[in-house]
């Protein structure tokens, strides 16, 4: 105690520096854990992508440095027809992933926005909001694995949903969802959608409630209808939250793994039918654990990293930049 009081007498500048040092200690655990469990694997994965490193049977071959060959091979197939860009399994898997994510995200954000604006509308004053919110959030609590298995048995060839649709005449008598590409992808997207729209809705509600109510009051005094309020006040001011939802969902969506890997797969873990439900992470897993081609798996991971980065930056600039620019402009105006 005496020490501290003495130091504090030494001058105000010194005192702040001392506290700052403790701050570093407090945040150190995060950085240590991050460096060991995230940064190092990240660097190691990128390093792996430059290696020829695989197992033939149980014999390991490599690691030998081969430069960018793995990464080039992840982008280009060289066959009889010559080099074809993006015609690789890495990009096929990536394409499946992005397609299934889009199928899930577009309806998800639309429905969530609609529900969020209804729940927050001060004029409608919906009754039993809590019950609705809980019901909608509920699917998110169930483990993704159980959901995938549940939906698989519902829609498998003799599953209750398939039987119901057959009896209604919606699908032909010998129809099997699991042998068709698009239905399988739609079902996977639907599980994701159903799981996550409640969560997105809660986030958006929080965002809308964060908007200054006086803006709504003012607009209403000016005679704006609900539609105008939604488009001209709620949406523009909700942009940062929408950006957040979009970016987190995109990153999560690109790593889609648990649901497709349990939904319609063969014993080797490939997404059926015909690779259509294999996501990029399932493909990476297959390369690492089954065929043990660590070099190629590293390259596929690097591609995934690059694509995630590009997509995130794209959203960031398209949605975020304008606001910044406008602010800067208005500052200049001032």
């Amino acid at each position: 105690m005496a020490d501290i009081s003495q130091k504090s007498n030494m001058g105000k500048k010194r005192k702040t520096v001392e506290y700052g040092r403790y701050g570093y200690l407090f945040i150190a655990p995060f950085f240590i854990v991050y460096a060991i469990f995230q940064l190092w694997p990240l660097v190691y994965t990128i390093w792996m992508s430059f290696m020829e490193y695989y197992s033939k049977g149980l014999k390991e071959i490599g690691p030998n440095f081969i430069g960018f060959k793995n990464i080039v091979n992840a982008f280009i197939t060289t066959g009889k027809e010559g080099a074809v860009l993006f015609d690789t399994f890495t990009f096929k898997a990536l394409g499946n992933t992005i397609f299934m994510w889009m199928l899930n995200f577009v309806p998800q954000i639309l429905l969530s926005l609609l529900l969020a604006s209804w729940f927050t509308d001060t004029r409608v004053k919906l009754k039993g909001q809590g019950a609705f919110k809980v019901t909608m959030f509920m699917p998110n609590i169930i483990t993704a694995a159980s959901l995938a298995v549940l939906f698989y048995s519902l829609f498998s060839i003799n599953g209750p949903m398939t039987q119901l649709l057959k009896n209604m005449g919606a699908i032909p008598g010998n129809y099997d969802f699991m042998v068709h590409k698009l239905p399988t992808q739609i079902l996977i997207a639907f599980i994701q959608f159903w799981m996550w729209y409640g969560n997105t809705m809660i986030v958006l509600i929080a965002g809308i409630l964060g908007i200054n109510p006086s803006l709504y009051e003012a607009s209403r005094v000016d005679g704006a209808n609900s539609k105008q309020i939604f488009y001209h006040i709620t949406l523009p001011l909700l942009k940062p939250i929408t950006l957040f939802v979009l970016v987190t969902s995109a990153i999560g969506g690109l790593q889609m793994y648990d649901i497709p890997s349990l939904f319609n797969v063969n014993q080797g873990g490939d997404g059926l039918p015909d690779f259509a439900s294999t996501t990029i992470t399932m493909y990476i897993r297959k390369l690492t654990l089954t065929s043990k081609d660590f070099g190629k798996a590293g390259a596929a991971s690097v591609v995934l990293f690059l694509v995630t980065l590009i997509i995130s930056l794209f959203f960031f600039f398209v949605l975020g930049e304008k606001e910044d620019r406008r602010q800067r402009k208005s500052r200049k105006g001032v």
Binding site: Q38, T45, Q255, R285, G298, S301, L309
Partner: peptide, 15 residues
């Protein structure tokens, strides 16, 4: 960094 973190969380568990 956030992207890196989330992307890598899958690579970390595979090997």
């Amino acid at each position: 960094l956030a992207t890196a973190m989330t992307t890598i969380s899958l690579a970390g568990c595979g090997t």
